[in-house]
Design a binder for these strands. Structure first.
Lengths: 224, 224
DNA sequence: AATCTTACTGAACCGCGGTTCAGTAAGCGA
DNA sequence: TCGCTTACTGAACCGCGGTTCAGTAAGATT
């Protein structure tokens, strides 16, 4: 019966929702279960979020910000960029521990038919991109990485309306750092899906090696 | 009122189900809609497949086999391996045309909590892997590619129980060809997700360039 | 033509679960 | 102490949609 402030309760409910999606999947998500997890009535959940749909959308955003906060912590550490990058790569891939991952499979499929969620994911992705790009840029300035515009665009040198972009934080091809970050993130996502869907077919440790190689080749560090 | 053989009707229904999932998403899939799409009664759908769940599982398998059939066609063409590989890469990435893609977002998220679907996806993935590995192996034998065991595993040279595997069709690290195929597939999946979820943030053509570069570096072809 | 199999329908069933709403009480300010 | 705001509940509502089932007729088989 303990009354809490609206914001505190909302946060509780969001956390419970994320846990629920994480363990049973979005498909099986019921507001009643979320409420039961906190010993509350289903009506309260609807009271704070007006609809289940809104609850889910908020939960995705909340989960995303949680992960980002940890990522920024790693990215902002007082260490050489090489090490920070490695730690980011390692932490990004799904493991038993920290980062919730299965929720993003649901988020992706939801985003395809829900404009709200799509834009949420877009924002989150841009922030992720900024985190990676920041570390890479640090490494370039420290002389750890050598990023050349190299073999970026292969076949589409024709119709790029704005060849140069002034803002280095956005995922615009043309900025070599940004491109490297995007490619690394894509590879990470692809590997993560495999890890989740195909179980232990390929060892997580092996995958970490693969991304590291990939990053090395993109960032001009000699492999092997 | 036209009666059809059970197998023909089943196939029709599966195709309709795939279309429906593709356009409205698994979340919103209703058996009534599938039936309506063919001008049939919902009961008939349940008559052929006993449950909606089974229908969806069958639809995933069917969609997967469709895509694979086309992939095998490309892979088996009478062309140099380099060209076949490029065409595979290009065709794999989601585009307006052929290959259905959004359905796989739903398939992935479903697989996380459905053993049946998970094993279906596992089988499909193994077949995809075999297709890519086959083309790569052709290229190696023809001298187009130079695959060395190179920088495969970076940090886990310690605990590989079975260092050598005899079957070259499986995704076992240790076989350099198989490893290359797995890495390429992972990158393709990651790029595809971005293309679908983030819309036209990065051009499809640009991504094709990225995968090509990646494949080139894995297959020992000099870039740029 | 008679019969048997089987694809197919219509209508009803029914449980599930999100949402509503009238009412309760906990905290807080005066 | 009174009263006002507001977090919170319980029960009922209700529409949606998967599934059931008894019945129909199309096509094959003889």
């Amino acid at each position: 019966m303990s009354r809490k402030s609206a914001s505190a309760r909302r946060e509780e409910i969001l956390a419970a929702t994320i846990d629920e999606i994480e363990t049973t999947g979005l498909r099986a998500l019921r507001v009643a279960d979320v409420a039961a997890r906190l010993g509350l009535s289903p009506s309260l959940v609807i009271y704070h979020f007006q609809t289940k749909e809104a609850l889910v959308a908020a939960a995705f955003a909340h989960a995303g910000e949680n992960d980002l906060a940890l990522a920024r912590e790693i990215a902002g550490a007082d260490e050489p960029a090489t090490e920070r990058l490695t730690r980011l790569l390692t932490w990004y891939l799904p493991s038993g521990s920290t980062r919730s991952w299965t929720i993003w499979m649901d988020a992706w499929s939801s985003a395809l038919f829900d404009e709200q969620i799509r834009s949420t994911l877009t924002v989150l992705d841009e922030e992720w991109h900024a985190v990676f790009a920041g570390v890479i840029r640090d490494g370039v300035q420290a002389g750890e990485f050598a990023v050349d515009g190299g073999p970026d665009a292969v076949g589409d040198d024709s119709d790029n309306g704005d060849p140069v972009d002034t803002n280095p934080d956005e995922a615009i091809p043309g900025d070599a750092v940004a491109v490297a970050a995007t490619r690394i993130l894509a590879f990470l996502d692809g590997l993560s899906v495999r890890l989740l869907v195909r179980g232990g077919e390929v060892e997580r440790a092996t995958m970490i090696g693969w991304v590291t190689d990939f990053a090395d080749s993109l960032l001009g560090r000699d492999e092997a």
